[in-house]
Design a binder for these strands. Structure first.
Lengths: 198, 198
DNA sequence: CCAGGTGTATTCCAATTTGGAACAAGTGCC
DNA sequence: GGCACTTGTTCCAAATTGGAATACACCTGG
């Protein structure tokens, strides 16, 4: 039987919660809104952007379990806002999670590829359009990731985010190239006449 | 005011529903269980594997809106099972979706990278371990995708799935290489002594 | 000075999606 | 005959998402 003075059974949190706590772990006091902006800035290159509503509810949960603390402050405009900061317990829990939690494999939902997979139901020109769009979007993302990388490089203590941003540049560049090659394969398929009709 | 003989307002379905309908669109009558297996086989390389429960509920919904039809048959073992097939309306709706629905950008949740991003909270050896694991898993996935590619190549009419499988091989190979480079960057960071402490 | 747009900040809700367990019945192995 | 495994299906609670709604402050133009 478990006795009472064991370390409190680790609270099991979804990855999203850790991502939010991770943002706080960079040390600033942030509002939910600002957490959202950080997520948009960096996280989005490798980890979807959670909905506002989810960020706010995660912050509340983090506070409930003692990993974050909030206080009400009034901004320059006099409006009250609630800022959150990570606690020591939160930092410890995050470290523990990093050290011990099993790592989920990357989850990918690739809309453009799903379309190609069902290519037999579509017009070849439409497929080209879908893949072209994806290629261009990937190129844009790579450029944006590179800006994020430069921004991270300018901040001391952001060596890891910089590394991740460098990875993100390469990732989205690879996506661009993969899309370009897919486009070639698509053209070749159509040219060869082996494309199943719709 | 809309009049009654317009084409029925397109039912708005989540992408998952289209993926399931897409599996049926390859023409076979399948049980929910078999749909699941197909998803495991191919879809997983570029589109998460939905939960069993979700597949069954999507099938029911597809039947409700008339995109799929089911009948009860008894298998070789005499047990009753419900098989689903796509209808003409379903095929038309899928084509229409392919042709007109806006394409969601790929959604990625990269657990391993999230860990690296929070590297300042972790032991460098642990980070190496996480990334190494990811690199090896990617290599495995690339090999498995290559098998799927060969399987698809053997079936006539599967030109598009084959194309997608080829893309998947390249994608997971790229992931493997990206992980390897990240590992190098990690080592370099630690060697340079610029790694923020935990 | 008031309307309207934009940025900050937060909350609420319905629908989606997930994970997991539970149930059931056949098959193959020892 | 017992046991594990595969096929096949259902149910439920929880997590997650998206979207809209609500404020208030600031700025711009008429």
């Amino acid at each position: 039987m478990a006795h009472a003075d064991e370390p409190p059974a680790e609270v099991r949190l979804p990855a999203t919660a850790w991502a939010v706590l991770g943002i706080l772990a960079f040390g600033e006091e942030l509002t939910g809104y600002e957490v959202r902006q950080w997520a948009e800035h960096i996280l989005r290159f490798f980890y979807w952007s959670p909905a506002m509503s989810q960020i706010y509810s995660e912050l509340k949960r983090l506070e409930q379990v003692g990993y974050a603390a909030s206080r009400e402050v009034s901004g320059e405009d006099g409006r009250p806002r609630r800022v959150y900061a990570i606690t020591d317990a939160g930092r410890a829990a995050a470290s523990d999670w990093l050290a011990h939690a099993p790592v989920e494999p990357p989850a990918l939902k690739h809309g453009p590829l799903l379309r190609v997979w069902l290519g037999h139901l579509a017009d070849p020109d439409r497929l080209r359009e879908v893949v072209t769009q994806h290629r261009d979007r990937s190129a844009d993302l790579a450029a944006e990731a590179d800006e994020a990388r430069r921004a991270a490089a300018a901040v001391s203590g952001w060596a890891y985010p910089e590394l991740v941003a460098r990875w993100a540049v390469r990732y989205h560049t690879a996506e661009r190239d993969l899309a370009a090659r897919l486009l070639d394969d698509l053209d070749e398929l159509v040219a060869s006449g082996r494309a199943p009709d719709l």
